[in-house]
Write a protein that binds this DNA or RNA. Structure first.
Length: 895
RNA sequence: GGGCGGUUAGCUCAGUUUGGUUAGAGCAUCUGACUUACAUUCAGAAGGUCGAGGGUUCAAUUCCUUCACCGCCCACCA
């Protein structure tokens, strides 16, 4: 049972991936004797390729799931992918484009066939990449949002909500992506500040009143950022209180370039301060204008084709793209002297979140979900703390959104997705009246319920992808069917996600949970940061600053990737390639420490590896101080790490682990006991601590720990399903830490002295210990260790010699924690400079003393400060005075 | 425009909830060490007016307030 000299992450990782898979280690089943713990994965897009965001998100989930699994929960991590409507369709459309075809040219059926073929071939890429990361999902359960069963859930929900009156069809201004040629929800339209222009255009009055006498008044100037939409103007609006325009209200204007006569209306919506205070009203192309149009019964003129080119309403501009039309219209206006000026204007422009195309507000008939009634319980759940969002400040963002929620446009004019389960009767003439009503049904109706016509047509649209993913926590468990899985694993426990999809997904899942299950979907939501490059920019392919997680896995291993990501995670994570070295180094450290222990504990390793409760063979009273200390330190770390995981403070948990394993176990414990490994108790302790440390490290760095554990313990099937260590109070020696500190301090003190005065290893050091006698014994007992680690040949410890005046040879010393170590310095150091240094030291201390005295003499302080604070200050004053005394007497000796 | 967060060492961040010794890490820098588990290592050092002003207090990095700068989210002012 030996470990190779060099750790090979790639080999080890593939070995354990195979093992886990073959043994189906991560499978979870309803188990009445155990408590369930459930996480559902935020389903990555089928088109997805593993990026750092995935790596972070899934590592966080994996840590928690592995921890809970070891804690004895029946831990289910439900994996799956999302069909990602527009994104996936885009991929296949691009393929078609290469063949010179379009989705329309091949037709809906053929296109869908292609999509499914693409999915079958490539849809699993992201899943296998997540697997590589070490994600302990129950992989055979992998769901896809367009699985048959899952689709049933989607249809069920549509019908339920429709029957409840919460889904309706309406003609509205929606966000339209001219490239994808589909509606987008408000959340899918990303607003970005753009430097645009504000165009001021003259709209002449059609019947100018000559009596006014002033030529200036013969037109109204309107300001717009989208001059091309003027082709669809059906009014100009002003604020009713705006005195400049009162006389124009109800007059008619001539729409330039078009010649249509339009009215001047008054509406409170118009802000007198903006632009000229007069707004052109284009009901078909702006949501506000649409609303105004409704209020004033204005005509609606749609001027664009779905691809945002101008339609026949645009007269001479017909066929032009919207931006081309804009240029031409501006030029034409200028030619006619109607363009007053163009100003720079910074404003938010909506872009398609998939293809970045500028969104065009467009009037169209879409399906909507009424959100207010759904939002109420979801809002309350967070406000009352039934669902906790971490970090807490995100709850405010959530509440803010929920309180201002708008209806959700769920229909999309694409083909990849769940087709809207609605049919229309297009049949026989004799029943037109009633048949206008849509037929909403989970299955295709045979005939129209009103007229009996069999000539039915299904709605062409599909549903927003999020309309399926908002059901994820229960639809993946089999809903709408009821089954054991659903009963046992729902509600899930923790949801981990990036802030970007808080509204898209998290908020809607909460609503769906309450609406369809009557229960919250999860209890905790952890919002983690975004992975950025070293300069703080988002990682993206287009910027070329992305670090490929697969490359890191290849080079350093998945362990290193995971460990480094987590330890660097604060809010956002700034990452450069070198940051991953820490993970690689730590895995290497674990490997080598284990090698050392294995090499030295060979005699009992076999026996040890067979027994589960090794602690029983540990007799705490027989252990030396370092062993008692490291065990106490382990249990301390165990508690802190457990707490940190439960409280979602993962980077802190890793820091605790690293401090313990690297800083205590390797740097101190193993160094201290290295020379004494023939002691069977030390062997036992070293193995015991190593084994348990592997357990608490495992969720964070699963592969290397699994590999070493497999050599250390042949009883468990594997570490992934081993038990999390339990606290064993009997093994904790409470004073060990304090005592050990004295040893560590003394070693450090002597090391300092050696370095400072350049003492050679073969020189002896007389350490005069100014501490209570008990510690003297401690130091004497551990003298050999101190000597070895401080790298001196001889260490003479003598408490009786602490009469500073008698050590006339001059002493110089160092104080470190509890002890002071003095060494003769004659011939070692320049006395004059040493005196100077000490004088400076004294001065500084005196200054502190003065400050303290002033405070302690302040009657306010004495009367108002708590007693313990005063006591501490007095104590400090005392010790400072003492130090000054000592220094003075040394100084006196020096002279 | 509304909301939320941040500003602590050269860099990345802890700490501040509940004010109280000398404000902590890691990386980077510098100095030492070839100590046979590990140079992917070990031991040290240096580095801070805790963004600025004001207030409360015996005491403020911590609480309150104003300001500056940075970031994020939301938003139909054309």
């Amino acid at each position: 049972m030996e470990l190779s000299t060099k750790y090979n992450p790639q080999e080890t990782e593939s070995k354990w991936l195979k093992f886990w898979k073959d043994k189906n280690v991560f499978h979870a089943e309803p188990a009445p004797s155990k408590k369930p713990f459930t996480i559902v994965i935020p389903p990555p897009n089928v088109t997805g390729i593993l990026h750092m965001g995935h790596a972070l998100n899934n590592t966080l989930q994996d840590i928690l799931v592995r921890y809970k699994r070891m804690k004895g929960f029946e831990a289910l991590w439900m994996p799956g992918t999302d069909h990602a409507g527009i994104a996936t369709q885009n991929v296949v459309e691009k393929q078609l484009a290469k063949e010179g075809k379009s989705r329309h040219s091949v037709g809906r059926q053929e296109f869908l066939k292609r999509l499914w073929a693409w999915k079958e071939e490539n849809g699993n890429t992201i899943i296998s990449q997540l697997e590589k990361l070490g994600s302990s999902c129950d992989w055979p359960r992998t769901r896809f949002t367009m699985d048959d069963e899952y689709s049933e859930a989607v249809k069920e929900v549509f019908v339920l909500l429709y029957n409840k009156g919460l889904i309706y069809r309406g003609e509205r201004i929606i966000n339209w992506c001219p490239r994808c040629q589909t509606a987008l929800s408000d959340e899918e339209a990303e607003h970005k500040d753009k430097n645009g222009k504000l165009y001021y255009i003259k709209y002449p009055i059609s019947h100018p009143e000559r009596s006014e006498g002033s030529l200036k008044k013969q037109h109204i100037i309107v300001a717009t950022t989208r001059p091309e939409t003027m082709l669809g103007d059906t009014a100009v609006a002003v604020n009713p209180k705006d005195e400049r325009y009162i006389k124009f209200i109800d007059k008619t204007l001539v729409l330039p370039l078009v010649g249509r006569e339009i009215k001047v209306i008054s509406d409170d919506f118009v802000a007198a301060e903006f632009g000229t205070g007069a707004v052109k009203v284009t009901p078909a192309h702006d949501p506000n204008d649409f609303a105004m149009g409704q209020r004033h019964q204005l005509e609606i003129v749609n001027i664009m084709h779905p691809d945002a080119s101008i339609n026949e309403e645009g007269g001479p501009y017909k066929g032009l793209d919207r931006f081309e039309a804009r240029k031409r219209i501006v030029a034409d206006l200028e030619a006619q002297g109607l363009l007053v000026k163009i100003e720079d204007h910074k404003h938010a422009v909506a872009h398609c979140y998939r293809c970045e195309t500028i969104v065009e507000p467009r009037l169209s008939k879409q399906w909507f979900v009424k959100m207010k009634p759904l939002a109420e319980p979801a809002l309350e759940a967070v406000q009352k703390g039934q669902i906790k969002i971490h970090p807490g400040h995100w709850a405010k963002v959530y509440v803010n959104w929920m309180e201002n929620i708008q209806d959700w446009c769920i229909s999309r004019q694409i083909w990849w997705g769940h087709r809207v389960p609605v049919w229309y009767c297009v049949g026989d003439d004799h029943c037109q009246l009633k048949c206008k009503e849509p037929i909403v049904s989970k299955t295709a109706p045979e005939k129209c319920p009103h007229c009996g016509s069999k000539n039915l047509k299904q709605d062409e649209d599909v549903l927003d992808t999020w309309f399926s993913s908002w059901l994820w926590p229960f639809a993946t468990l089999g809903w709408p069917k009821t089954n054991e899985d659903l009963k046992y694993f729902y509600p899930t426990d923790t949801l981990m996600t990036a802030s970007e999809i808080l509204f898209f997904w998290v908020a809607r899942m909460v609503m769906a949970g309450y609406e369809f299950m009557g229960k919250k979907p999860f209890s905790d939501v952890l919002i983690h940061g975004t992975v950025r490059d070293a300069k703080g920019r988002k990682m993206s392919k287009s910027l070329g600053n992305a670090i490929d997680p697969l490359e890191i896995i290849e080079e350093y291993g998945a362990d290193a990737l995971r460990y480094s990501l987590i330890i660097n995670s604060g809010q956002d994570i700034f990452i450069s390639k070198e940051k991953f070295e820490i993970g690689r180094n730590f895995a290497n450290k674990i490997w080598n420490a284990s090698r050392l222990v294995f090499m030295n504990c060979g005699s009992i390793l076999k026996e040890f590896s067979h027994s589960e409760r090794n602690e029983e063979s540990l007799n705490i009273n027989r252990l030396d101080l370092p062993s008692r200390w490291i065990i106490a330190r382990f249990y301390d770390t165990l508690q802190n790490v457990s707490r940190a995981i439960e409280e979602f403070r993962y980077s802190e948990a890793e820091t605790l682990i690293q401090d313990f394993f690297w800083g205590n176990y390797c740097d101190w414990y193993l160094e201290l006991v290295k020379a004494k490994f023939n002691d069977i108790n030390i062997q036992k302790t070293a193995l015991f601590v190593l084994k348990n440390a592997l357990k608490i490290m495992h969720p964070f760095i699963p592969f290397v720990t699994e590999e070493i554990y497999s050599k250390l313990n042949t009883k468990d099937e594997c570490l992934s399903i081993a038990n999390w260590p339990e606290l064993n109070e009997q093994l904790i020696d409470k004073v060990a830490a304090q005592q050990m500190q004295v040893i560590l301090d003394s070693i450090t003190a002597i090391r300092n002295i050696r370095a400072q005065w350049n003492i050679k290893p073969n020189e002896s050091i007389n350490a005069f210990v100014v501490t209570p006698g008990t510690w003297l014994r401690l130091l004497q007992e551990n003298c050999a260790d101190i000597q070895r680690l401080a790298r001196i040949d001889q260490l003479n410890i003598d408490v009786k010699a602490v009469n500073l005046k008698n050590t006339a040879t001059a002493l110089v010393g160092t104080t470190y924690g509890a002890i002071k170590v003095f060494v003769p310095l004659e011939g070692i150091v320049d006395l004059e400079s040493e005196k100077k240094r000490m004088n400076a030291d004294i001065m500084e201390k005196k200054k502190s003393i003065d400050g303290l005295n002033a405070r302690l003499n302040n009657p306010d302080f004495v009367s108002k400060a708590p007693v313990d604070v005063i006591a501490k200050e007095k104590e400090r004053l005392g010790s400072l005075n003492k130090e000054v005394c000592e220094l003075n007497s040394i100084l006196a000796n020096l002279s």
